[in-house]
Amino acid sequence: MNFASDNVVGASAPVLEAIVRHNGGAMPAYGADPLTLGLTPRFRQLFDHPDLAVFPVATGTAANALALSVMVPPFGLCLCHEEAHVMEDECGAPEFYTHGAKLHGLPGTGGTIAPDTLDRFLGGLTRHVKQMPPRALTLSQLTESGQVYTVEEITRLSRVAHSHGLTVHMDGARFANALVASGCSPAEMTWRAGIDILSFGASKNGALAAEAVVVFRPDLAETLDFRRKRAGHILSKGRFLAAQLDAYLADDHWLANAAHANRMAARLAAGLAEIPGVRLAWPVRGNELFPIVPAALDQALRQGGAVYYDWASRSLPAGETVREGERMIRLITAFSTTGTEVEEFLALARRAG
């Protein structure tokens, strides 16, 4: 019953089989192999975009930091939610790769930024040389509270950002989960809504270690290969990154994985909602849920073998709070989470409740 993260599970069978299948023989190194070269037409078809560029990397941190490095100069400001992963969980990697640019967090319920909040902040800035000029906005999809930016919300935020001269990045660590939840196309959630660069996540949803920086504006892609090489993220045996992404996308495997994880989260949430004293901090949109539970229930779950994280947030809905004698916890389901694991957790919760 490990619901700590979708990072704690292994890779999916099709991904592992692809790595083994492409292990034999010799292939050109450093991304010159046919598999890596084939990613560009594959992603162009997936996103219905004739000019996008794709740059595979091994980690989400690298994808986010390298993406922001082409969007924000060293003297620039990158706006994000105040609890965004890029700000709180990447050890300053974006600042490092941008050579000193600053991240500034904006408030918002459920880890989301409202367009009016963004517009007010940008409109209130001076244009004095003493102030770092805003150059980019980054949005997390799913958010750190498990919420989904709708296409309409992304479009409105992008319009505000672009009107102020900013580019827009999406941290899509759980892009597939958000896409399945929204029922829209990859193009609708990204470039058609105004996204300039996407960090396309795969490692949380079935890959072993594979992400991709997907650039929808050719002018932003121009230096990314050089930045990726300087950062040590062009793998000599690049075929193994490409093999993962190829298998991940084949036959909509990535969407099936995400749909399963989302279903398991919904099933877990429905069961927990029936237990007295338990409520959800936010609606369950993807594969993350944040129950507020009695402290005694939290203790019983842990003693019974359940694994998950304590959680805290500054973006709870208005009127919601974690009261004395309560705990907020985070549960994440994965592509490999089974119904049996969910039912065992719920049975343990019912006995304790």
Rank of each mutant, 00 (worst) to 15 (best):
L122C: 12
G123P: 13
G123L: 12
G124C: 10
G124H: 10
T126A: 03
R127V: 03
R127W: 01
H128F: 08
H128Q: 04
H128E: 05
V129C: 05
V129L: 09
K130W: 11
K130E: 14
P134S: 09
P134L: 08
P134N: 08
L139F: 12
L139P: 14
S140A: 09
S140W: 08
Q141R: 08
T143P: 00
T143R: 01
E144P: 02
S145C: 14
G146Q: 05
Q147K: 10
V148T: 06
Y149D: 03
T150F: 01
E152M: 02
E152N: 01
E153Y: 00
E153D: 02
I154N: 02
T155Y: 00
T155E: 10
T155M: 03
T155V: 07
R156Y: 02
R156L: 04
R156K: 10
L157N: 12
S158F: 02
S158V: 03
S158T: 02
S158R: 04
S158I: 02
S158K: 01
R159M: 15
R159W: 13
V160R: 12
V160E: 15
H162K: 08
H162I: 06
S163T: 07
L166V: 12
L166D: 14
L166R: 14
T167Y: 14
T167A: 14
V168T: 01
V168S: 00
H169T: 03
H169D: 10
H169N: 12
H169M: 15
M170Q: 15
D171K: 05
D171I: 07
A173H: 11
F175A: 03
A176K: 06
N177C: 14
A178S: 15
L179G: 12
V180S: 11
V180G: 07
V180P: 07
G183L: 03
C184P: 04
C184Y: 15
S185M: 12
P186A: 03
P186D: 05
P186C: 06
A187R: 14
A187E: 11
E188P: 01
M189I: 11
T190R: 00
W191E: 10
A193L: 02
A193E: 04
A193N: 05
A193S: 11
A193Y: 02
A193H: 06
G194L: 10
I195Q: 12
I197Q: 05
L198G: 00
L198C: 07
S199N: 07
G201P: 13
G201I: 14
A202R: 05
S203K: 10
K204Q: 13
K204I: 11
A207N: 09
L208D: 02
A209Y: 00
A209W: 05
A210P: 07
E211N: 15
A212C: 11
A212I: 04
V215N: 11
V215S: 13
F216Y: 06
R217L: 14
R217N: 13
R217H: 13
D219G: 03
A221G: 09
T223P: 08
L224Y: 04
D225K: 07
